[in-house]
Amino acid sequence: MAAEARTRRTEAIHPVHAVLLAGSLPLFLGTLLSDWAYGSTYEVQWANFASWLLVGALLFSGLALLWSFIELLRADRRGRRNVMGFLLLLATWVVGFINALVHAKDGWAVMPEAPILSIIVAALVIGAIWFAFSGSRSGETQ
């Protein structure tokens, strides 16, 4: 029984990792919505919001990425299965960083790249979260 409990603990996603990973989703989504709001109103404050939400999203997803990377290095069974989740998160972060550089442009110069990249990066992070959390669920059933 003790052995089984320990296995379950290592295979479930760590709560801190879960917060970092899932917490980046509303920030990426907020970036996308703010981009949309700027595009439809020309109100520059929305562009400022987008820039800061994106910084927050990169911080959360960056820490989550670091966590996943360390898990991969430790190469336990759960980590190996989560290569896909790690790669998606890596892609999220790289595209998100490029998006941050785009968001540093002045005024309308961010258009149309900013919302396009925000859509891509939101889709990528949803994928990364899906793999990470479904991985932990299947781990429980083993």
Partner: peptide, 8 residues
Amino acid sequence: ALRPKDFI
């Protein structure tokens, strides 16, 4: 500094 860029 209004945006992340302004700090840089």
